[in-house]
Design a protein around this nucleic acid. Structure first.
Lengths: 215, 215
DNA sequence: CTTGCATTCAAACAAATGTTTGATACGATA
DNA sequence: TATCGTATCAAACATTTGTTTGAATGCAAG
C-alpha cells in the first residue's frame, strides 16, 4: 500500500490529479477513491461532498504553485530589463516544468479558463493579481513616466498572452510543428524569445527612456 | 413554436449553443431537447448518439467560422505590414465579434483546448494550419531572407498568443481591470495594439529589410 | 382508402453517480 | 475491561443520464 500517514491529504492529492486531468464533471468519486485505495464514502466523510473536495484541491494547488515557484523579488537597482527576463522565466517555469507534480498548474489553468463558482475569484485576487501587478511595476520602469495605465495593461496582456499560449495551445502546437521542433521549445529558448520580442516591442512603442543603456 | 423547417438543423444549433456554454460532460440531452422543444429521443433518432451529435456541432462550427469570417486574401503588392494588420483584425473578429452566433468560436476554442477524440485533429489540419501558414507567409516578407523557420514559428506563436489571450483570459481580465476599461477592449483598439507591438518586436528582432518604408 | 415510410412521443430501461447508512474495527483514556 | 470518538467499509439509496421501445401521427404514393 502507498504511504498513507494522512489519508485526507492522500485523497486530496489523488483527487487533484484526476480533476486536473479530466475536469470536475468527467471525474467521478469512485474513480478517485479507487485510485487512492480508499472507500467511496471517504470523500463525503473527509470533505462533505465532491464539490467541496474539488474546491479544496484548487486551493491546495494555488498554495503549492506559489510555494514551489515563488514570484521573483529583486533588491534595489536591478535593471528593469533583467527583471522582465526573470519574470518571464519564472512564469514559464510554473507552466512548463516537468520535475514537479504537474497537476497543480493544470488544475489552476483549467479553473482560470472555466471558473467554477467559489473557486476562481479568490484565486485571481490572491495569485493572479499580485503577479500581474509585479509585471506592471517592471513595465512602468521600461516606459516613459507619463505612459497611461491602459497602455501598461495592454503591454502586460501581450506578454502574459505569449507565455500562456505555450500552455493553452500545447496540443495544437504538437500538431503544427514537427516533433523535434516541438521538443526544442524548452523554457530557456522560450524565455529568450519572449523577452527579446517583448522588449523590442516596448522600445518601439514608447520613446526610449533616458536612463537605460542601448542594447 | 420556433421556426422548425428542418428539425435536425434546429437540434444541431441548440446543441451547439449548450455544448459551447458548458462543455460536453456538463450538458445532458434532456436539457438540449427541452430547449429545442423536441423529444428526448430525437437526439438518438437524428444523430445516433450524444457523442455523434457533439462531433457534428464541432464540424458545423468549423465550417461556419470559416464561412462567416473568412481569412483575408490580398492581391499582389499589398505591403506585409498592412497584411499583418488585417490578419490580426480578422483573427480578433472571429474571436470577439458579438453580432454573430457566438457559440461557433466558443465551441471550437473549447475543443482546441481540450480535444475530444475525433474532433480536434481534423479541425487543426483544415482550419488552424492554413491560418497559421498564412501568417507565416506574411512574416517571411517582414523578415530577412535567411530567417530560420523556427524563428518564424516563434514570432507567429507570439502574435497568435496575444490574440487568443483576450479569449482565454476574458474571465480573469474582467476581474483584473475596471469595468470601463474592460469594456474599452474592443476589436479596433486591440488590433491596433497587437499590430504595433508585434511589428515593433519584429523590426527589433530582425535587421530591417530594405524595401519597407519607415513608420 | 390503404399501404408504406419517416417522424414524434411518452414511457421505460439500464447503467452511472453522489450520497447516506449502519455495522465494524481501532486506539486512546479512565 | 469498559467507554468514547474516529475512521473505514460494504451495501443500499435516490437521482441523473444516455438510450431503447413500441405505439401514435402525418403524409405521400399506389
Amino acid at each position: 500500500m502507498i504511504l498513507m500517514d494522512d489519508p485526507k491529504q492522500h485523497l486530496l492529492n489523488v483527487a487533484g490529479q484526476k480533476f486536473a486531468e479530466k475536469g470536475f464533471d468527467a471525474t467521478n468519486v469512485r474513480e478517485i477513491t479507487e485510485a487512492a485505495g480508499m472507500n467511496v464514502a471517504s470523500v463525503n466523510y473527509h470533505f462533505g461532498s465532491k464539490e467541496e473536495l474539488y474546491l479544496e484541491t484548487v486551493r491546495h494547488a494555488a498554495r503549492m504553485c506559489e510555494q514551489i515557484t515563488p514570484m521573483p523579488t529583486w533588491e534595489e537597482g536591478v535593471p528593469a530589463e533583467q527583471r522582465l527576463r526573470e519574470y518571464i522565466r519564472s512564469f514559464l517555469t510554473r507552466l512548463l516544468r516537468e520535475d514537479v507534480p504537474t497537476w497543480h498548474r493544470k488544475l489552476i489553468m483549467r479553473e482560470v479558463a472555466e471558473p467554477r463558482p467559489g473557486g476562481c475569484e479568490v484565486f485571481v485576487h490572491s495569485f493572479v493579481k499580485p503577479s500581474f501587478e509585479l509585471l506592471q511595476g517592471i513595465l512602468r520602469d521600461l516606459t516613459p513616466p507619463g505612459t497611461p495605465l491602459e497602455t501598461l495593461h495592454l503591454i502586460g496582456s501581450s506578454i502574459v498572452g505569449q507565455v500562456l499560449h505555450y500552455h493553452h495551445a500545447r496540443n495544437v502546437l504538437k500538431l503544427l510543428f514537427s516533433a523535434e521542433e516541438f521538443q526544442r521549445l524548452q523554457i530557456d529558448r522560450l524565455t529568450d524569445h519572449i523577452w527579446r520580442f517583448s522588449l523590442g516591442a516596448i522600445r518601439s512603442l514608447c520613446p526610449r527612456k533616458s536612463k537605460g543603456e542601448g542594447r
